[in-house]
Design a protein around this nucleic acid. Sequence first.
DNA 1: TTGAAAGCGCTAACAT
DNA 2: ATGTTAGCGCTTTCAA
Lengths: 344, 344
Amino acid sequence: MAITIKDVAKLAGTSTATVSKVMNGSYSISEATANKVKQAMEELDYHPNAVARMFAKQSTKTVIFLATIEKNSGYSNPQLFEMICGLEQALSNKKYALLIKNISPDETPDYVENAMQCRICDGFVIHASVISKRLDSLFFEHEIPHIVIGTPNFKSHFCWIDIDNRLAGEMAITHLFRKGYQRPAYIGGKEDDNISNHRLEGIISVFEKHSVNFDERLIKRGESEPDNGYNSTLEILGKYNCVDSIICANNYITYGCVQALIERKVNIPGDIGVITFDDYPFSKVLRPQISVVDIDVFDVGVQAGKYILHKIKKPNTYVQSYITVPVLIERESTNKRETRLRKI
Amino acid sequence: MAITIKDVAKLAGTSTATVSKVMNGSYSISEATANKVKQAMEELDYHPNAVARMFAKQSTKTVIFLATIEKNSGYSNPQLFEMICGLEQALSNKKYALLIKNISPDETPDYVENAMQCRICDGFVIHASVISKRLDSLFFEHEIPHIVIGTPNFKSHFCWIDIDNRLAGEMAITHLFRKGYQRPAYIGGKEDDNISNHRLEGIISVFEKHSVNFDERLIKRGESEPDNGYNSTLEILGKYNCVDSIICANNYITYGCVQALIERKVNIPGDIGVITFDDYPFSKVLRPQISVVDIDVFDVGVQAGKYILHKIKKPNTYVQSYITVPVLIERESTNKRETRLRKI
DNA sequence: TTGAAAGCGCTAACAT
DNA sequence: ATGTTAGCGCTTTCAA
């Protein structure tokens, strides 16, 4: 059997309560006894039993992260893991443990309810892809410390944190204008792709601010695949030779777009500027390198971690949303060398 | 306060011991009392306190995964997360929890020692990037259940599991030969890149089996970046027009290689066949699509999970290595339409 | 088949 | 400032 608090107490000639107080840094202990105890711990190479501690304190110092993570998630959703990295950092800093659990949306409420009743963790960080109305009611009734990463697409009481894709769209178009481009086109994912939608909304809002309409014919939608980028670009080149820049909703579309431009010997950034979102995986590798509005997904994880810890400490605070800001990474693909004097 | 075992016992008119036995499926309980107890649990909506259970049983049902995971790991090392996905699945299946902890190689031994002494987990899965000789001694002395993912590059007592990159190399070259290619070149990462080295070893071994030498001039090494692939390919095209195929050590090199071939209007797969390793991230997207020898990294995680659980149950079993097998994914880039009758 | 009771190792309220 | 002691909720041995 391992060394316990009793052994330490015996060797130090004190009670176990005193040892406990020394471990937990109570001020009501004289330096002399504290030293005796510390020495005894040292001598015996004592390590307090973590589970016994959790048990006595009724707290686990553990946060569970819930999302659907299955075969291929590592490849198909690196951002999820980038968030996890940030989350781990924030929790680890405060001596909290991070437990990862794969789950489907319908299992989540039962799992959460059970986990709370079994007191398996102190709180939850939940990816928006596994939330549901049932989960919302559960949280609302039981006041379970949680934070959702991603925006719920229904009315709810969740605390959530997300990326501001509208703002990212605004930043992309603003950058193009600043660089002297005047007639951008947009190639997005399918109509039901919310990320593409929000980015587009941001773009349109900037046009509106200047009281200009974004010509709808210059908005293309399709699969988030290189083929869509390729075909849409050819279409744009064929029909609208006024276009001087293309905003691609994501890296996959960008890849096809750039292929098409190179094939048609269209100069980037001279003839057409290209900008996209998220610095992954093609934007760095393509030639020319592509300017992007990037989002610090790691930081989203960090913020989620900080928030859940805060919530665990002070369950009565309530923030519904909390947002991280995109960053522009300027590269060759938008480096138009023309005069910037014209106004749109 | 939540419902406890006492409440259940009282309602069922039994002792807490009986309730415990019912929960744990002891056969020495009559069906009648078992039913009474189950009904009482139902009625009270009883959920046993997980921490109390761990405490009484002196087991945590938790495995800790240790690796260096920091900002950008999600992007730069998706395979790591793919493994984690597999690991989670294997553990979850057996009701074990997976705890993720970021750590550096020098912190690992202290962390592990402390975690074991505090009985924070039942075992460890450790990425080879954070192992050390000190850790090896620690494990050897204390017999801590563990498994390392990746091959230790020093003599050790670790249990480890890895991918067989030599075999992957053999499979790549064998595929080329089978398709009728006769003069392959190899573009690898830098000399100290073990993955590239092992893949090359496998290739060479197949040549040796046929008592043929692999012409050293056709082996290029450099950064694992598109630029290296591009430049090496141009060099090969310029100097050695006998070459009819290229084996790229990874996707980044492949990307540059294919760019160069397309630029020089070399037909893939007609003039030159291309094959690489790991189906990520470019092999699927490039045109033509690239044949790869892929490795099921998810499965590596699953195997690691199964192994660590086994080890926790039966600590005296010992397996030093345990390997998952690569899979050939045949695509356009090696589809030479020539006769296959010639021999090398 | 069931129950009494002694842990599991630590914390915290209360007493001194 | 320190010690006593009663938990925390469940498991398990041993006796009935």
